[in-house]
Simulated scan of single mutants.
Amino acid sequence: MCGRFAITLPDEAMVQLFGAAPANDLPPVPRYNVCPTQPVAAVISREGTRHYGPMRWGLIPRWYKHPTDGPLLFNARSETLAEKPAFREAARARRCLIPATGFYEWTKEGEARLPWFIQRADDAPLVMAGVWQVWHGPEGSRVGTCAIVTCAAVGGMAELHDRVPVILEPGDWALWLGEEGHGAARLMRPLPDGALAFHRVGTEVNSNRAEGPELIEPVSSPS
């Protein structure tokens, strides 16, 4: 799964990387502890044009009357993405890219929850596959919402957690966004073993209120 991540990459660099038109109200960066329900920046494609704009992390199905009417859907399992009522329409027609510097996972040592920071071994931006939905709230309000697609972990990553985000290579972005027709389902697989690097970080990140570059710095022992 992916329940926290960091995004430290400047908006200008992301707009250039994706060839997208930016929104005026992008979430601030850098952010070292992005949590579900917070705004994140995502890339969508409409009529051949890519847009880079804010979305609430946590997809709200169209039948929810209130964002808390059901479970918080911040992850979507690749194996059931096309079947679950909350995700199946988005899986077909509303897929997005969610960039990150890296994401966090936790292991347990006794009663302690030990956090790890995971990023690409080549230091490239980590681009996660997502699905999105515009939720129509009370009094005509409209909120763009999204979820990160996950798949089974392999190799060394599987020792940290059994799930990882689906991470897409640049050559796959257009297909995932629906710009190259059908076949996006084949992209829902983990990166090869060794493509991701990870290190222990301090337990300060266990608090969803923590923020700052020290959260992703390596530590050699539990803190």
Rank of each mutant, 00 (worst) to 15 (best):
E217I: 01
V219I: 09
T68D: 03
R189S: 10
E79T: 05
F103Y: 10
V164F: 13
C146T: 13
Y32M: 02
A93P: 00
S78L: 01
R88I: 06
P39Q: 09
L81N: 12
W176H: 14
G19Q: 10
D162M: 07
L59R: 06
V15I: 14
A195L: 04
G53P: 01
M1R: 06
E214H: 03
L215V: 09
E180I: 07
G48F: 10
N24D: 15
I98F: 02
A21L: 13
I98T: 13
Y64H: 09
G53I: 03
M1L: 04
G156A: 07
A91Q: 13
G137Q: 06
S78G: 13
I216Q: 11
L191V: 15
Q16I: 00
P67Q: 09
L175D: 15
Y64E: 06
R4V: 03
W135R: 15
A6T: 11
L72M: 14
R94G: 08
G137C: 02
A23Y: 00
Y52G: 07
P125T: 01
D122P: 02
M14S: 12
G183E: 09
W135L: 15
H199M: 03
E204Q: 05
P222S: 08
M157L: 15
W173T: 00
V201F: 01
V40Q: 06
E79S: 05
L81F: 13
A121C: 12
V166M: 09
V201H: 12
G19I: 11
G48P: 08
W57E: 01
N24I: 02
Q38G: 00
R120W: 08
A13C: 07
P54I: 13
A21D: 08
P99Y: 05
A93Y: 02
P30D: 04
P22I: 15
Q38L: 05
R56F: 08
Y52V: 08
E105V: 03
G3I: 02
H199A: 05
G53S: 11
P218V: 12
G140F: 12
A86P: 04
G183I: 10
I118Y: 06
A174L: 13
V29H: 05
D11H: 15
D123P: 04
S223P: 15
A121T: 13
M128G: 11
M1Y: 06
V166L: 10
G48N: 11
E159T: 15
T101N: 05
G155T: 09
G194H: 03
V40K: 01
W106T: 10
G70Q: 14
